[in-house]
Structure formats: C-alpha cells, structure tokens
C-alpha cells in the first residue's frame, strides 16, 4: 500500500542499479508505516505492560507474582504446559509418522482434521470438551473443574504443532538410509533410533517449544472446563483476567510480564534449535 503511493515520487531505477532496485524513498515510507502500525498496536502496548508491572517498584512486582493464588496459577500453568508439550512430543510425532508412513482409507480426512484446533475458536473447544468430559458426560468421564480437564483443553489446542513441524521433515526423509541400515542388519527399532530419530529431533523439539508457548498463554479453552478455581485449576491467563476485572492492572501486568518472559525464552530456545537443525541439515 505504502509502497504504491511512494512509487510516483521515486525516480525510475537505472539499468545498472539491479542489486538494490527499490531503496531510499519507497523503502523509508513503507518501513515507517509498518513500524508505526506495529508500534501503535503491538509494541507500545506490550512495552506498557512491562513498564506497568514495575510501576510500584521491583518489590511490588515480586509480591504480585508470589501472592499465593498468582504463584499457584503460574506454577500450574508452566507445569501443565510442560507435561502437555511432552505428550505432544510423543503423540504428535507418532501421528505424523502414521500420516506419512501408513496407508489407510480416510487418511486425507484425518490429515485435514489435525488443523481443526487452529480453526476452531478456543471457547468452542472448551465447550465441546466440557460436553463430552464434563458433568453430563455420556462416557461417564468427568474431568470438569480438575487439573486433568485443564490438561485436556491444552492438549486440544496444541495438537497441530508437533504434527505439522515433524510431518514435512518425515516426508523429505530419504528412505535409502533406512533401507541401507536395515540391509546392514539393523533392527527396525535400531533403524528408528539411529537413523530416523536424529533427523526428526530438531523438528520435534521446535514443535514442542511452539506447543509449550501456546499452552502457557492459553485462555479461552480453559475458561469453561477449569471452573476457574484458584489454587486448583486457575491458569495464569485466567488469573490475569480476574485481576483485570478486579481493576488490579499492576498485578495483572506483573503476571503478564512473567508469561511474556517465559514465552520469549521458549521462542529463543526454538530459534537456537532451528539454527542447530539447519546447520546439521
């Protein structure tokens, strides 16, 4: 958009200037608009959250984070997210494996279904889980208002991450290596451990890190099924929400800042992993 308007005033590129065809005016205007848009919507508001969290000193920040209910919410969130990420690591890889290496009728439908948690609104995800695994469960399984229920909601929303990062790597994986290993006398388990797994590990860990980041920030799907019981099932995002409702924005900002830092650390680790993976590849 901004690029277009700038084009009228920009001088036509000379034939020799191929390397940097559109520098200067157009770039500056486009960059300025993009940065302004990002600043007004994302950067300044987020910076204000961090600023607000330390508004009344670091002592207050620490107190807000370690109030019993906030601390319980944070530890539950991080603990549950770690468990959920690990379950995803195993089951996500397994599902990716089945989708790539197995053949059965209806596989395309299963493959499409994997993305359902991305497309389904989180509040609806929470509601459908509560309908099947809540007090009126036709299966007789009631996980409502329990930590297991929170875990279930997190498993639902994080399902696609590991599957979708491992799947393409598995498709690209050269079968020759496996056949070579097998013909040299490796058992299927050995082949998997020595040949396939090392190739998949970077993708598996990327997916796990993404799932973890998503899980710690999850709100909508846990609202209904967790019942929002402080000290028991209240996750950090729900705790922040009730603090905002209670007009304690400083406390909410402190917990938000902790969540932001944990997410950024996870994403930084992911970035390092990806570089490690690409260096190996």
């Amino acid at each position: 958009m901004t690029v277009d308007t700038s084009s009228r005033t920009a001088p036509p590129p000379r034939a020799g200037a191929r390397r940097r065809p559109r520098a200067s005016a157009g770039t500056a205007l486009g960059l300025g608009s993009a940065v302004l848009y990002l600043s007004l919507i994302v950067l300044i508001p987020l910076a204000l959250v961090v600023v607000r969290s330390t508004d009344e000193g670091l002592g207050y920040f620490w107190k807000a984070v370690t109030t019993p209910d906030a601390w319980a919410a944070l530890t539950l969130t991080i603990g549950a997210s770690a468990v959920v990420a690990l379950v995803n690591l195993v089951l996500g890889t397994l599902i990716a494996w089945v989708l790539v290496r197995d053949r059965f009728p209806g596989k395309a439908i299963v493959d499409t279904l994997i993305d359902l948690p991305f497309a389904l609104p989180t509040i609806v995800a929470g509601l459908v889980l509560l309908a099947l695994y809540g007090p009126e469960s036709p299966l007789g399984v009631n996980l409502a208002y329990s930590r297991a229920g929170v875990g279930l909601a997190l498993l639902f929303v994080t399902l696609p991450f590991v599957v979708r990062t491992v799947q393409p790597v598995l498709i690209e994986l050269d079968k020759d290596m496996e056949q070579a290993a097998a013909s040299l006398g490796a058992s299927p388990f050995q082949t998997f451990r020595r040949i396939i797994l090392p190739n998949l590990v970077p993708a598996m860990l990327s997916g796990t890190a993404l799932a973890f980041t998503r899980a710690i920030s999850e709100f909508g799907s846990t609202v209904l099924i967790s019942g929002n019981l402080p000290f028991k099932t209240q996750v950090a995002a729900v705790n922040i929400f009730s603090q905002i409702e209670g007009d304690n924005t400083t406390g909410a900002a402190a917990i938000s800042t902790v969540l932001l830092v944990v997410a950024l650390v996870a994403l930084l680790a992911l970035d390092l992993l990806q570089r490690w993976g690409s260096r190996r590849g």
Partner: peptide
C-alpha cells in the same frame, strides 16, 4: 504469536 490473548487485552 507468543502473547497470551489476555495480555493483548491488558496491553
């Protein structure tokens, strides 16, 4: 992507 929806609202 890394920000909780609730934190978005607060921000």
């Amino acid at each position: 992507v890394a920000v909780s929806p609730v934190v978005v609202g607060l921000a």
